[in-house]
Design a protein around this nucleic acid. Sequence first.
DNA 1: CACGAGATACGATTAGATTCGTATAACAAC
DNA 2: GTTGTTATACGAATCTAATCGTATCTCGTG
Lengths: 126, 126
Amino acid sequence: MARDNCNIKPTEAELTLLNILWKIGPATVRQVHDAISKTQKTGYTTVLKILQIMHGKTLVIRDESNRAHVYAPSNSETYTQSSLLKDLATKAFGGSTSKLVMRALDESTSKEEIADIRQLLNELDK
Amino acid sequence: MARDNCNIKPTEAELTLLNILWKIGPATVRQVHDAISKTQKTGYTTVLKILQIMHGKTLVIRDESNRAHVYAPSNSETYTQSSLLKDLATKAFGGSTSKLVMRALDESTSKEEIADIRQLLNELDK
DNA sequence: CACGAGATACGATTAGATTCGTATAACAAC
DNA sequence: GTTGTTATACGAATCTAATCGTATCTCGTG
């Protein structure tokens, strides 16, 4: 589902937080900080600040009805992934999505993955 | 063909210059500036500075035997594209290349592109 | 050799990303 | 109400990217 905001590309730190929010759902700063702390050491106020900046950019929405605000992504993971791919296709593949796809596929692609992709191609080909 | 340097990700401006070098081949600052000027307005010294920075990062090599240095990409376009895709897969697709590929494909993919991708899948599947 | 065209080198500026310390506000519980 | 805990807000420091002006160097040519 597309959004109202205009193609704002999340930075690396922002994408890290978005990944957490997509995974655990709407969450407070505390919850996001707890989640990120499992894999990296980041200060609580750092997480807070970045979420505030993301809110300013409308990358997230927040519910302020309780003392601890609850943050949620503005856009779906799917939509954001598509945007990032579109961006990369433009900047590194002359705008060609199929070139991007073919570059992504190599000998490390497993049989199962190949089967899944074939299936999707069949559906698109109808 | 992989390279000696260790996965240095080009910035946006750097990638723009790399695209030009991959297209026109080894070139002087003047030539790169002429090429980029066709699509955007950028100062000559800006192009020079970025090429110098890229040289410092070993993103490009340069031939200093003439007064006007000649710059060339350190890595092939193919290798760089693969690196960028790997990076995006890690940061936005949980490391799954096949998820990335499937997200890249959609109804805008043409019959010809689908055929090309099928062909590649067949070769990988041997 | 002096000069002008055109090259590189370098420093400064601006903007954005990232980090975190400190101040302050809200609330629960005694 | 005072106090301790846990929030948010805000400002500052640091770092990188990107841009460009100015200084300086190198050459070919008169």
